[in-house]
Amino acid sequence: MVRINFSSSIDLIKYPLITSKTNLLFENNQYTFLVDPRLNKLSIKKAIEFLFDVKIIKINSCNLPKKKRRVGQFTGIKPRYKKVIVKLAKDNKIDLFSND
């Protein structure tokens, strides 16, 4: 297991995943993020609570499979990520679509 300190775990949260299915989860106060696969649930919880100033109730995570990509004659794989669905407390909210 790789030890990751708190300051680097903030950088390892890549971006929120916005699809039609994850938009339906917004109604249940659940948000989806792609993170580095080395992070565990505890470090993900601490980083998201620090970044967005929210209280997390539950975290579901799954490792996404490797995907092959081809550029001309060369084949390779895309970077791997872990998908995380975070359920927030009832009165908390993350504003992903800010007008600023």
Score class of each variant (00 low, 15 high):
Ile59Pro: 05
Lys82His: 07
Asn40Phe: 10
Ser9Lys: 02
Phe33Arg: 01
Asn40Gly: 13
Leu96Asp: 05
Val71Arg: 09
Ile44His: 02
Ile56Lys: 07
Phe6His: 12
Ile18Gln: 04
Asn28Lys: 14
Lys66Arg: 12
Thr32Tyr: 06
Ile85His: 04
Phe50Arg: 15
Gly76Ala: 03
Asn92Cys: 13
Arg80Gln: 13
Asn29Val: 11
Asp100Lys: 10
Lys14Gly: 04
Ile59Leu: 02
Tyr31Trp: 06
Lys93Asp: 08
Val35Tyr: 01
Ile4Thr: 04
Ala89Asn: 13
Asp11Tyr: 14
Thr75Val: 11
Lys83Trp: 04
Ile57Asp: 12
Leu24Asp: 13
Lys58Ser: 08
Lys46Gln: 13
Asn92Met: 07
Ala47Asn: 08
Tyr31Leu: 03
Ser20Leu: 13
Ile59Val: 12
Lys21Cys: 07
Asn23Asp: 07
Ile59Ser: 03
Leu24Phe: 11
Ser7Asp: 14
Arg80Val: 03
Pro16Ala: 06
Gln30Tyr: 08
Ile48Ala: 07
Pro16His: 00
Ile10Cys: 08
Asn63Arg: 08
Arg80Cys: 04
Asn40His: 10
Ser20Ala: 15
Lys45Trp: 06
Ile13Cys: 04
Asn60Ala: 09
Pro37Cys: 09
Leu12Met: 12
Val35Asn: 05
Asn60Arg: 11
Leu17Arg: 13
Asp11Ala: 14
Ile4Phe: 09
Leu88Trp: 09
Val84Gly: 01
Asn29Cys: 12
Lys87Cys: 06
Lys46Arg: 14
Leu34Asp: 02
Lys41Ile: 02
Asn92Leu: 05
Thr32Ala: 14
Glu27Asn: 14
Leu24Met: 12
Phe52His: 14
Gly76Trp: 00
Leu25Pro: 03
Lys66Ala: 11
Ile44Met: 02
Ser43Asp: 14
Leu24Gln: 14
Ser61Gly: 03
Lys67Ala: 04
Ser98Met: 11
Glu27Leu: 12
Ile10Glu: 11
Lys93Arg: 10
Asn60His: 12
Val84Asn: 03
Met1Pro: 08
Asp91Ser: 15
Val35Cys: 12
Arg38Pro: 02
Lys45Leu: 05
Leu51Trp: 04
Gln30Ser: 11
Glu49Phe: 03
Pro79Lys: 07
Lys55Ala: 13
Val71Glu: 07
Lys82Pro: 02
Asp100His: 06
Lys45Tyr: 05
Pro79Phe: 00
Lys46His: 12
Leu34Ala: 11
Arg3Ala: 11
Lys87His: 04
Lys45Asp: 06
Thr75Pro: 00
Ile85Asp: 11
Arg69Ala: 09
Lys67Met: 06
Ile4Met: 02
Ile4Val: 15
Ile44Asn: 03
Lys67Ile: 07
Ile77Lys: 00
Leu39Arg: 06
Ile56Cys: 10
Pro37Val: 00
Glu49Tyr: 01
Cys62Ala: 10
Asn92His: 13
Lys78Tyr: 09
Gly72Lys: 13
Asp100Leu: 10
Ser61Val: 00
Asn40Ile: 08
Phe33Leu: 05
Gln30Ala: 05
Lys68Gln: 08
Arg38Phe: 04
Arg38Val: 04
Lys21Val: 10
Asp11Gln: 15
Pro79Met: 00
Ala47Leu: 08
Pro79Tyr: 01
Pro37Ala: 01
Phe52Arg: 06
Phe52Glu: 05
Leu12Asn: 01
Asp100Gln: 09
Ser61Phe: 01
Ile57Pro: 02
